[in-house]
Amino acid sequence: MIVCIFQGRALSRAAAAAALLAAGAGLAGCASMGDGMSTAFADPAKYQLYDCKQLETERKSLDTRAAELEGLIEKAQGGVAGPVVAELAYRNEAISVQGQRKFAEEAWRQNKCRPSPPATAAATPAATAASIASATGAKPAKGAPPVPR
């Protein structure tokens, strides 16, 4: 009777260990699946009708969001249950953003877009009013800077 109890416990421990190993292998497979499955969480037709200006804005916002998510994942990794929190809270959105970035890049290349040049400083309203006044010969508005002649 005693031998039977010890054999039953050893068998249940072996079964539990085998179940843990199988679960670990299954979760490891999920972690590597994220890179290949990134486009499954994004709409491939979303960016087909975007023009270059819209694509440029979208690409910048996707890059920003991807960087935010990577930072959050790294921050969560340092916690007590960090890897679990990182996977549950942020990984799906990070995979989705990665897929969206891929489709936005494809649309960017298909449209043969080029990055826009950096914006120059806009003229101040007072300077614009003064230049209009000098061009028309009118007296500048009260409070406007003097027009050099």
Rank of each mutant, 00 (worst) to 15 (best):
A23S: 08
A23W: 04
G24L: 06
G24T: 11
A25R: 07
L27P: 00
A28D: 07
A28Y: 10
G29E: 02
G29I: 03
M33E: 14
M33R: 13
G34L: 10
G34D: 12
S38H: 14
S38P: 08
A40F: 05
F41Q: 14
F41C: 13
A42C: 07
D43L: 00
D43N: 11
A45C: 03
A45W: 06
K46G: 00
K46L: 08
Y47V: 03
Y47S: 04
L49F: 06
L49T: 03
Y50A: 09
Y50H: 12
D51T: 00
Q54C: 02
L55V: 03
E56A: 03
T57Q: 09
E58W: 07
E58H: 10
E58R: 11
R59S: 10
R59P: 06
K60D: 08
L62V: 06
D63I: 07
R65E: 14
A66M: 11
E68Q: 15
E68W: 10
E68P: 07
G71P: 01
L72E: 10
E74V: 06
A76G: 04
Q77E: 12
Q77D: 15
Q77T: 08
G78T: 10
G79L: 06
V80F: 15
V80Q: 13
A81E: 05
V85M: 12
V85D: 07
A86L: 03
A86K: 02
A86R: 04
Y90W: 06
N92F: 06
N92I: 04
A94M: 05
A94Q: 05
S96Q: 15
G99T: 01
G99R: 02
K102F: 10
F103D: 02
F103V: 03
F103R: 07
E105Y: 01
A107S: 09
W108E: 00
W108Y: 03
W108Q: 01
R109K: 14
Q110M: 13
K112L: 08
K112D: 08
C113W: 00
C113G: 09
S116M: 03
S116K: 14
P117L: 05
P117E: 00
P117I: 00
P117V: 02
P117W: 00
A119K: 13
A121H: 12
A122Y: 05
A123T: 07
P125H: 01
P125N: 03
P125E: 02
A126K: 10
A129L: 04
A130T: 02
I132W: 00
A133G: 07
S134K: 13
A138Q: 14
A138Y: 01
K139N: 04
K142S: 15
K142A: 15
K142N: 14
A144F: 00
